[in-house]
Computed example of a mutant assay.
Amino acid sequence: MTGAPQILLAHHLKTLKLPTFLREHEKLARQCAAEGLDHVQFLARLVELELIDREGRMIERRIKVAKFPAKKSLDSFDFKAIPKLNKMQVLDLARCEWIERRENVIALGPSGTGKTHVALGLGLAACQKGMSVSFTTAAALVNELMEARDERRLLRLQKQLASVKLLICEPACKIDPCIGVIGVQK
């Protein structure tokens, strides 16, 4: 397709904010024609691609907003290095049902036992399940609360924190044993 119809279609797809449609429609149309698929099957595939792409962008946005210090998943965690850590329990936590039940998780243990990696993995899993997550340190949280109080915006900050489904708060110090709190809003 060339000329005015192509320009008009591109304009409409941009206006409707359908970037995957815009990027993939010609290639997919040729592919569906070669496979002998009708227009409904073509549209179904195109809509599916748009939805998959949109969900991926939403996950990436939630991860960016969470402000994780590193992007670590539980897939990259070496459970064999810390045999006392209950792998099944951690993987069960990754299902995020505890967040829906508004329960809290506290990670206890000496430095180097994977508490932060597990917390990041649980936060990433929550982002992938469509939940809002925020990562901070205890020191940064205290500083932010004090600044908000001094600037008379404490109530706004409290509302902002309350709107997050999962708050991960790392300890301010590295004293053994360290405590990491993964908190759910009540």
Score class of each variant (00 low, 15 high):
37 L>M: 03
38 D>Q: 02
39 H>F: 08
39 H>S: 13
39 H>W: 10
39 H>E: 11
41 Q>R: 05
41 Q>V: 00
42 F>L: 00
42 F>P: 01
42 F>K: 00
43 L>S: 01
43 L>E: 02
44 A>I: 06
46 L>E: 14
48 E>M: 04
48 E>P: 12
49 L>V: 00
50 E>S: 03
50 E>H: 01
50 E>G: 04
51 L>I: 11
52 I>G: 04
52 I>N: 05
52 I>Y: 00
52 I>P: 00
53 D>I: 00
53 D>S: 09
53 D>C: 01
55 E>V: 02
55 E>K: 10
56 G>K: 03
57 R>N: 09
57 R>G: 03
59 I>A: 05
60 E>K: 13
61 R>C: 07
61 R>I: 14
61 R>S: 14
62 R>W: 02
62 R>C: 14
62 R>V: 12
62 R>M: 07
63 I>G: 10
64 K>N: 08
66 A>Y: 14
67 K>V: 08
68 F>M: 04
70 A>R: 09
70 A>K: 10
70 A>P: 08
70 A>M: 10
71 K>L: 13
74 L>Y: 13
74 L>I: 09
75 D>V: 02
75 D>L: 07
75 D>G: 05
76 S>P: 07
77 F>T: 03
77 F>Q: 09
78 D>H: 15
79 F>L: 04
79 F>Q: 04
80 K>L: 15
81 A>N: 09
81 A>W: 09
83 P>Q: 11
83 P>K: 07
84 K>A: 13
85 L>C: 12
85 L>T: 14
88 M>D: 14
88 M>Q: 10
88 M>R: 08
89 Q>C: 03
91 L>E: 12
92 D>R: 10
92 D>G: 11
92 D>F: 08
93 L>S: 05
94 A>Q: 14
94 A>E: 12
95 R>Q: 15
97 E>K: 07
98 W>V: 12
98 W>Y: 11
99 I>G: 12
99 I>R: 01
99 I>C: 12
99 I>H: 09
99 I>P: 08
100 E>V: 07
101 R>H: 15
102 R>V: 10
102 R>G: 12
104 N>T: 11
104 N>H: 15
104 N>I: 13
104 N>D: 15
105 V>I: 15
106 I>R: 05
106 I>G: 03
106 I>P: 05
107 A>H: 04
107 A>L: 15
107 A>W: 08
108 L>T: 07
109 G>A: 02
109 G>C: 02
109 G>E: 07
110 P>A: 02
112 G>N: 06
113 T>P: 02
113 T>A: 05
114 G>N: 05
114 G>K: 11
116 T>H: 08
116 T>M: 12
117 H>C: 11
119 A>N: 07
119 A>Q: 05
119 A>W: 04
123 G>Y: 02
124 L>A: 04
126 A>M: 09
126 A>I: 06
126 A>L: 07
127 C>D: 14
127 C>S: 09
129 K>H: 06
130 G>S: 03
130 G>N: 06
131 M>N: 00
132 S>T: 08
132 S>E: 03
132 S>P: 01
133 V>C: 08
133 V>P: 06
133 V>E: 04
133 V>A: 03
135 F>P: 02
136 T>R: 12
137 T>M: 06
138 A>Y: 01
138 A>V: 01
139 A>D: 15
139 A>W: 09
140 A>Q: 14
141 L>D: 14
141 L>F: 07
142 V>A: 15
144 E>P: 01
